[in-house]
Amino acid sequence: MSRETEDVREAIAGELRLMDPRVRMSRTLARQLMDPDFVEVGASGRRWTYDEMLAALSGLDGGAEGGPRYEPSNFTGVLLAPGLVHLTYETTSDGERARRSSLWRKQGPSATWQMYYHQATPIPPDSM
């Protein structure tokens, strides 16, 4: 497996872990997957910082064991530079669809991949 393939695979695994309600309900687990410089532009257009997201994550969609969960599809990823992966994919949750883009970075050989930036764009119901 190439370094690029392995890095992309690890970033996708991190993305999927962040969709897990057990991770979303645990600041400790979420903190391990989010870069301290994290920023998100959500599907609502709201800008989220690292601290805001950690505080709100358990109450957002996908945060409850029995509630709606994100169903991801069509993952693609590319290694932009050593330690920087760009992912794109789509999600469906409770009938709502969104296109998503994330940057994952790994700072140093012993570091883990962490989400640095995330953006969600709603897909209109009549769109492909």
Rank of each mutant, 00 (worst) to 15 (best):
L33M: 02
E15Q: 03
T28S: 05
G42R: 10
M19V: 07
L18V: 09
M19Q: 04
Q32P: 02
P21M: 04
V39K: 12
R27W: 06
L33V: 08
D20G: 08
E15H: 06
L33F: 05
V23F: 00
L33Q: 03
G45Q: 11
L33W: 06
G14P: 04
A43K: 04
L18H: 01
S26H: 10
F38G: 10
T28D: 03
R24Y: 02
R22F: 00
M19A: 03
R46C: 14
Q32C: 07
P21W: 08
R27E: 04
V39Q: 13
G42Y: 09
D20V: 10
S26V: 11
D35K: 12
V23D: 00
R22Q: 03
M25T: 00
M25C: 04
D37H: 14
M25D: 03
T28P: 01
E40N: 11
L18C: 00
A30L: 06
R46K: 15
D35F: 09
V39C: 14
R46Y: 12
G42T: 12
G14Y: 06
L16E: 00
V23I: 05
R47S: 13
R46W: 15
R22G: 02
R24H: 01
R22P: 00
M19G: 02
L33I: 11
M34V: 09
L33S: 00
L16I: 14
D20E: 10
S26P: 09
D35T: 13
R27M: 02
M19E: 04
D35L: 10
R17V: 11
G42L: 12
P36N: 07
R24W: 01
R17D: 11
F38I: 13
R47H: 14
A30R: 05
R47F: 09
D37M: 13
M19F: 07
G42F: 12
R31Y: 00
S26C: 07
T28N: 01
S44R: 06
D37E: 13
L29V: 06
E15Y: 07
D35H: 14
M34L: 15
R46A: 15
Q32R: 13
R24L: 01
P36F: 03
Q32M: 05
L29Y: 01
L16Q: 10
P36Q: 05
R46V: 14
G42K: 10
P21A: 02
V39I: 15
L29E: 09
S44G: 15
R46F: 13
G42D: 13
L16Y: 04
F38Q: 04
F38A: 11
R17L: 11
R47A: 14
R31T: 08
V23G: 00
D37F: 12
G14H: 08
L18G: 02
